[in-house]
């Protein structure tokens, strides 16, 4: 399936956010490979604009702990679960904002607060499709999977045409 504008925006956003603020070089993985047997956490946030939809982020527990420690400049062993969750929520917020800034250059968007998904809420593990982008990466200590689902079509960015 050719890469959609949304897929490209998601891939570029994950890379930029992880490299700039988490000091991690993400290595792409096929989405199916990211279903880890060990514990994982999931965060979801809804957005309103053109398009509207939601972003879901899944991280293996070890990956969440390590990237939280790196972001805060602290040692992973001393980090509380609350602090890890706060960092993962901010990671989701930044990826989502970055994606929307790439696909919406003129309209204003609004992000809801990210919320942690409970163990009983199963994150959607479907593959990429129309209006849905999925991107999975290894972040050294584990795996991160980001998916964006939109309710409206995403148009490619307007390109300058010279007449």
């Amino acid at each position: 399936m050719p890469e959609t504008p949304l897929q490209r925006a998601l891939r570029d956003s994950v890379q930029e956010v992880l490299e700039k603020m988490f000091f991690v070089e993400p290595v792409e993985e096929p989405p199916g490979a990211a279903d880890a047997p060990e514990g994982e956490m999931a965060v979801q946030l809804a957005f309103e604009g053109l398009p509207s939809g939601a972003l879901t982020l899944r991280l293996t527990t070890a990956a969440a702990r390590q990237i939280a420690a790196d972001f805060l400049g602290e040692d992973a062993s001393g980090l509380s679960p609350v602090k890890v969750e706060e960092v993962v929520c901010e990671l989701a917020n930044m990826i989502c904002g970055s994606v929307l800034s790439r696909v919406e250059s003129t309209a204003t968007f609004r992000l809801a607060s990210p919320r942690l998904l409970g163990a009983e809420e199963r994150p959607d593990r479907r593959q990429a499709a129309d209006g849905r982008a999925v991107h999975a990466v290894s972040v050294g200590s584990g795996t991160l999977t980001a998916s964006v689902e939109t309710r409206d079509p995403v148009c490619p960015p307007v390109e300058e045409s010279g007449f």
Partner: peptide, 19 residues
């Protein structure tokens, strides 16, 4: 080819952690 970039990210991470 990627060692250079990984070295750079490691540099930034450790400087950040070191204050």
């Amino acid at each position: 080819f990627e060692i250079g970039k990984r070295n750079y990210l490691a540099l930034r991470k450790i400087l950040w952690k070191s204050g």
